[in-house]
Design a protein around this nucleic acid. Sequence first.
DNA 1: AATGAATACTTCGTGATATGATGTATTGCA
DNA 2: TGCAATACATCATATCACGAAGTATTCATT
Lengths: 105, 105
Amino acid sequence: MDIQLKRGLLDVCVLAAIKNGDSYGYKIIKDLNPYIELSESTLYTILKRLEAASMLTVRSAEHDGRLRKYYHITDAGVRRIAEFKEEWKEVISVYRFVIMEDQHE
Amino acid sequence: MDIQLKRGLLDVCVLAAIKNGDSYGYKIIKDLNPYIELSESTLYTILKRLEAASMLTVRSAEHDGRLRKYYHITDAGVRRIAEFKEEWKEVISVYRFVIMEDQHE
DNA sequence: AATGAATACTTCGTGATATGATGTATTGCA
DNA sequence: TGCAATACATCATATCACGAAGTATTCATT
């Protein structure tokens, strides 16, 4: 997918990926993969950003000797998803404009 | 609208705005305004980018003593809109993922 | 035992890009 | 005379996705 189109979706995808149960970096990538591709560097950047914005909290845990950082969504994170859904109405309106102009031929 | 969401839409909006007839900067902003807001500096940056990518051509004309630069869409520009419509299917798939996770409560 | 793939997280540099600020210049209205 | 609207231009800045490179462990295969 076009990188510019991704920009508006990635943050919310990550929040959605942890909404129904805490998850960790590697798993989030695997879970999102069928819908949207993102690299590790991208994901960890996003996780840090969302943490700084208090949209998720982190807890470290050891699993089979390996470190895992579990991410938990906050109320602000849940609200962010709700906002996204609201904004989507505007996105659809913009999409319709493009289609309308395109089919005007 | 969230700036990140805009990023994937602006270029195509500008192309759509000139698809059915050449237009100029100031008019493009007014025409797009009901659907998506963008400032002059943003628009002129986009127009330059699209011109560099051969998605539109420019022609200067004088109108009431004032300079106007009319922008004309190229075949590549038309193709860009078609590509956008294809990519939109992926966007919808991502949106559905977010909704699905959100309503999982 | 050794090798490599998979798991798991981290940091850094880079390029793309939307936007505010600022500037120039003309037209038209109050 | 002054101000809003029209019309285009440039610059600096902040945000962000991503590749590259690194560290370290587990597990299956040879």
